[in-house]
Amino acid sequence: MSVDNEELIKDTFGRGFDAALGLELTDVTADLVAGTVDMSAKHHQPFGIVHGGVYCALAEGTASIGGFTWLQASGIGGTAVGVNNNTDFLRSISTGTVAVEATPVHRGRRQQLWRVSMTDADGRLVATSQVRLQNIELPEGVEPPVPATGA
């Protein structure tokens, strides 16, 4: 399933903590979630560089969106929540646009594993993550935010 309608992407996934971080999604499919964040002082730790938690949160957010999108496309349904996030910080930056890309490593009926890369404007890797997701049923009364389709 591909979510190519920009308004649908913004209304469905571009809210909550991801929006507070400034994540702008550019591509949402069952096989790829991509976006950008313009890093600024609001993302800093006390010493003027981007806080590592920002990268962890971006990884969790994009992997979860990809996991959910795949569950809808595969017909399994439900949603995916993070159960492990392993993020390595490779290069410190203070400002600039960071591109985020999440791709699946493994997708199963119960769990998924996604790899997330975050690069600076020069294409240099600043952080990389692996996020394990648990597939769960949607809470009672909650409907999927995008129409479910077959794979």
Rank of each mutant, 00 (worst) to 15 (best):
L8Q: 14
P145I: 07
S2G: 06
A148C: 03
T149W: 11
V142I: 12
V28F: 05
G141F: 08
L133E: 05
D31L: 06
T149M: 09
L71F: 01
E140R: 13
R91D: 05
V146D: 00
A63Q: 06
G67W: 12
D38Y: 01
P144E: 00
Q72P: 00
G66H: 04
T103P: 01
I49F: 11
G78P: 03
T128L: 06
V100N: 05
T29I: 03
T103L: 05
V126S: 07
V33K: 00
G96L: 07
T149L: 10
T128Q: 11
A148W: 00
Q134A: 15
T26L: 01
V28D: 01
T128I: 12
A99W: 07
V131P: 01
V83Q: 08
S94T: 09
P145V: 11
G52S: 06
V50T: 15
V3W: 04
D120H: 11
V105Q: 12
S117I: 12
I9Q: 02
S64P: 01
M1E: 03
I49V: 15
G52W: 08
F17G: 01
V3R: 03
M1N: 03
T69H: 04
V83A: 07
V33E: 00
V50L: 10
Q111M: 14
Q45E: 11
P139A: 07
